[in-house]
């Protein structure tokens, strides 16, 4: 059984079909890549999986259970975490706080505990902060604990966002164009980071990316999406040779970067 299954997904925005008859199985432990030109519907699929949109038709299963129609925070608490194409950190709060709030679903205390300052509250809150600090260490960002995200360089913001997604303790991590807007040095670091966290947390990772360099370096299996449909599937070397993919990418980008 695959970890994440998408069966016959169709999604419409008004009259526009954004995703058509999309099928996908992601097995546990895979580093899977979904590529495709701009506007192909990649982010829409992420939004469907994370519960931000409800698919017009079709079924989404995670660990065998349907997650269609769940609220995003419910989907996340099941173990599906993600990052965003445009970095979405909480900028009025410190780096540490950013890593604490994403543990919201497993705080284990409620409103009453928080205002009465109960023993349970203190204990759980300590755990939350401890866990956040551990992630800071993993991210090698300890010195930025009390910094505000907007003051960090772009590469570190990306890293923090991935870290925040990890604090969910996900089974599968969805990375939405993690290399967008990055300098090539940063990209190298990013590739290392993704490889490293995968090994460290035994994660299944699903990646959307534009930069062929990243996809080819990381992914074991790649699907190519165009106009909401899968046009090719295979290993990086197969994809590289596929004529339909080359055509979709105007025949250049793939060969140049690969």
């Amino acid at each position: 059984m695959a970890l994440l299954e998408l069966n016959n997904i169709n999604h419409y925005f008004g009259g526009l079909q954004a995703v058509s008859n999309f099928n996908l199985n992601i097995d546990e432990g895979v580093l899977f890549g979904l590529i495709g030109p701009n506007g192909a519907g990649k982010t829409t699929i992420f939004n469907l999986v994370s519960g931000f949109y409800k698919p017009t038709e079709g079924e989404i299963r995670f660990n065998g259970k349907s997650i269609k129609g769940l609220k995003p925070h419910e989907v996340t608490s099941l173990g599906i975490s993600r990052t965003f194409q445009n970095i979405r950190l909480w900028n009025s709060m410190t780096v540490l706080e950013n890593l604490c709030i994403s543990q919201h679903y497993r705080l284990g205390y409620g409103f009453i505990d928080s205002i009465l300052y109960t023993g349970k509250y203190i204990e759980r809150e300590k755990n939350v902060i401890k866990s956040a600090r551990e992630f800071l260490e993993i991210l090698e960002m300890k010195e930025y604990e009390n910094e505000y995200p907007k003051n960090l360089p772009y590469g570190l913001q990306r890293r923090l966002e991935i870290g925040r997604a990890l604090t969910i303790k996900p089974k599968i991590l969805l990375l939405d164009e993690p290399a967008a807007g990055m300098a090539s040095g940063d990209i190298e670091q990013l590739i290392q980071l993704v490889k490293w966290i995968r090994g460290k947390f035994k994660l299944t990772i699903w990646l959307i990316e534009h930069q062929m360099k990243v996809v080819m370096a990381l992914c074991e299996k790649i699907d190519v999406l165009d106009f909401g449909e899968i046009i090719a599937e295979g290993t990086p070397s197969e994809i590289r040779k596929n004529p339909r993919v080359i055509k979709a990418y105007l025949g250049e980008e793939v060969t140049v970067h690969a």
């Binding site: 519960g51 931000f52 609220k71 925070h73 975490s81 950190l89 919201h104 705080l107 409620g110």
Partner: peptide, 24 residues
């Protein structure tokens, strides 16, 4: 409290809050 800071997360970026497991 981390719980209450969920409110601030809603202000800063509601979408991120919801997707990062805050029941907005």
């Amino acid at each position: 409290s981390t719980y209450g800071k969920g409110v601030i997360a809603v202000r800063d970026d509601e979408i991120a809050a919801e997707i990062m497991s805050v029941n907005t």
